[in-house]
Simulated assay, not measured.
Amino acid sequence: MVFSNETPLILVVDDEPFIRMQLRLSLEQEGYHVAEAQDGREALAAFEQLQPDIVLLDALMPEINGFECCTQLKMLPNGKNTPILMITGLDDRESVDSAFEVGAADYVTKPIHWAVLRQRVRRLIHESQIQQQLEASNRALQQLASIDSLTEIANRRRFDEYLKQEKQRIIRAQFATSRGNPILLSLILGDIDYFKFYNDTYGHKAGDYCLYQVAQAISSVVNRPMDLVARYGGEEFVVLLPETDAAGAAHIAEQICTQVRALEVPHLRYSQGYITISAGVATINACFEDGMNNLVAIADQALYRAKQKSRNCFCTKVK
Rank of each mutant, 00 (worst) to 15 (best):
E94R: 08
C69T: 15
V96E: 08
E63L: 14
F47Y: 01
F100R: 02
F67M: 05
L60T: 12
D92T: 06
E101T: 04
C69N: 09
I54M: 09
R41K: 12
K74I: 11
E101D: 10
A99I: 03
D106G: 09
P83I: 08
C69W: 07
E63M: 14
L73A: 11
P77V: 06
A104C: 15
E63I: 15
P77K: 12
A104W: 02
D97Y: 08
A45W: 03
L85P: 10
I87D: 04
L56T: 02
D53C: 05
V96H: 02
L117P: 10
T109F: 00
I54C: 03
W114E: 09
L90Q: 11
K80G: 14
F100Q: 00
A115K: 15
D97V: 13
Y107C: 02
A46K: 06
V102G: 05
A104V: 03
M61W: 05
V55C: 10
I87G: 00
P111D: 06
A46P: 06
T82V: 15
I112Y: 08
K80Q: 12
C70A: 09
T82C: 15
D97E: 14
Q72K: 15
G89D: 06
D92L: 08
M86K: 11
Y107S: 02
K110N: 02
K110H: 05
Q51R: 13
T109S: 08
K110M: 03
Q72D: 13
Q72R: 15
Y107W: 08
E63V: 15
E48V: 10
L50P: 06
V116E: 13
Y107I: 01
V116A: 06
V108T: 08
R41D: 14
M86A: 11
P83Q: 05
F67P: 00
D53H: 12
L60A: 13
K110W: 01
V55T: 03
A59M: 11
Q49Y: 08
I84K: 10
V102P: 05
L73E: 14
L57M: 15
E101C: 03
N65K: 05
A45Q: 13
D106F: 10
F47C: 00
G66M: 01
A115W: 09
G103Y: 04
P77D: 05
E42L: 08
V102I: 09
L60Q: 13
S95L: 06
E48F: 05
L50Q: 09
K80F: 07
I87S: 06
V116R: 03
A115F: 06
D58Y: 10
V108P: 07
E94L: 07
A104Y: 01
P52I: 00
D92C: 07
Y107G: 00
L57F: 03
L57C: 09
Q49G: 00
D58K: 07
L90P: 03
V102M: 05
S98D: 12
M75I: 08
E42S: 11
E42G: 14
L85N: 07
I87K: 06
P83S: 09
Q49L: 12
A46L: 01
A43H: 03
P62R: 03
N81F: 13
L90C: 04
L90V: 07
T71G: 07
L44R: 02
G66W: 00
L85I: 09
H113S: 15
N65V: 11
Q49R: 14
T88E: 04
P111T: 13
E48S: 15
F67I: 13
V108E: 05
E94S: 10
